[in-house]
Design a protein around this nucleic acid. Sequence first.
DNA 1: TGCAAATGAATGAACGGTCATTCATTTTTG
DNA 2: CAAAAATGAATGACCGTTCATTCATTTGCA
Lengths: 194, 194
Amino acid sequence: MARDDKRELLLQATLELVAKQGFHGAPCAAIAEQAGVAAGTIYRYFENKDVLINELYLSLENRIHVALLEGYSVEMPFRERFLHVVRGLLKFFITSPLEFKYIEQFHHSPYGVAFRRDRMLGQTESEGCCTIYSELFTQGVAQQVIKDLPRVVLFDLAFGPIISVARNHILGFIQLDEALIEQIAEACWDSLKR
Amino acid sequence: MARDDKRELLLQATLELVAKQGFHGAPCAAIAEQAGVAAGTIYRYFENKDVLINELYLSLENRIHVALLEGYSVEMPFRERFLHVVRGLLKFFITSPLEFKYIEQFHHSPYGVAFRRDRMLGQTESEGCCTIYSELFTQGVAQQVIKDLPRVVLFDLAFGPIISVARNHILGFIQLDEALIEQIAEACWDSLKR
DNA sequence: TGCAAATGAATGAACGGTCATTCATTTTTG
DNA sequence: CAAAAATGAATGACCGTTCATTCATTTGCA
């Protein structure tokens, strides 16, 4: 088996266990078993468990970024770009429930706290991935098409409902389809537009 | 020291430790120390740690419920009742950062998962505490003043941003004041209203 | 080509540390 | 002084990580 395969197997095993059972349900022994590998083997591919957890998170962030960029152009009218991002996020989440759950677990764990602290310290300005959103909202405020609220609040108004709706879909409390996604995206827009 | 005092001390210690450091940072030994008590004493007041954690959560849910009921009346116009609840929640959260953080930690931990599962099984209809919201949204849809979306989606649109904004206030990324709270409540209303 | 030596990936038992919980003992209370 | 409350050392379960050992594969040599 090629080196990268086993590495990928370990990442996938971690994704599944953490998504389905949380970090408490994903000890190294279980991750190794799920990957069909011995516990010690983890340490041939990752310096330690923290590194494994964090690398998986980073790769998921990147996959989202790539997905959102598809069909996105700074030439599009503002409202369209906003709706594109909202729809894109929702669709990514509901078609990738394990990834969504992993990200949520990560954010609310000590890993997420440490990660945010480190990113805070290490950010020398635009961090590549968050640029889309920042740029979008800054333009919207400047063009007076959305409410003049602090950037962070605009973020919360737009993405708070998205996360919440995605979670409830994944937990089976609602069934999102194209039509409902469109209505939700429009509702998010309503809360932002002037 | 009266019996209830020591019990209260343990609940308060748990609140503080979990809020500030998460469940990982709140082992029984630390909770006992913070409460000025020996580890074994915990088990004179709570059957085990799970019970302590869950009872604390229930008491916080109840405090929120009581706070929201203050100044609330089913006689008020629909929009006013909605804004009352949104403002009330936001104000409760930002004046009770420890309580907010505890609730978030709880929701995203194995405790929260088990709790929701148990509540699902045990609910014989309206569970007292959630009645306000359910009733509110059902009426709003019936009176055609808010969008005709699934109840759960309305919940998400209204409360997703609230949680998100409260978190960012407590983490110090924004400073909420009366004016900003009002603007946010209005924005939530915009996303719901027809 | 055929054989021996070297390599390094994989293993999993073992280790040190942390945790929730127990219980024999001590302290407080009425 | 008897009963209740509080103590904290001891216990066993579980965790992440290490490392001596195994063994399939590759390399070096005649």
